[in-house]
Amino acid sequence: MRSNFLKLVLPAFAILLAVGLAFATEDNTIANEGYYLDDFGNWITVTVEPECFNGGQIACTSDGHQLYAEKSTSSFPLAKN
């Protein structure tokens, strides 16, 4: 009985829980995207850490370029603490 619990019920419970959680947190997985202007004048989109949208003293950069919230240098420059 105990062996069945470990072999069957526990993994089945874990799998169901994980799948349920994946669907339950689906809305929280929206990509945080930032943009930077490369040396050739093209806007490059990158995934950035969420803290960069809070602002702060440390500039968020990618490949040495300042990241912006939108594809415009007049938009919010991303930074964190």
């Binding site: 993994p11 874990a14 799998i15 829980l17 994980a18 799948v19 959680l21 994946a22 669907f23």
Partner: peptide, 9 residues
């Protein structure tokens, strides 16, 4: 298992 199934899903 929780980690891998959650992230894979």
């Amino acid at each position: 298992t929780l980690l891998f199934v959650y992230t894979a899903t």
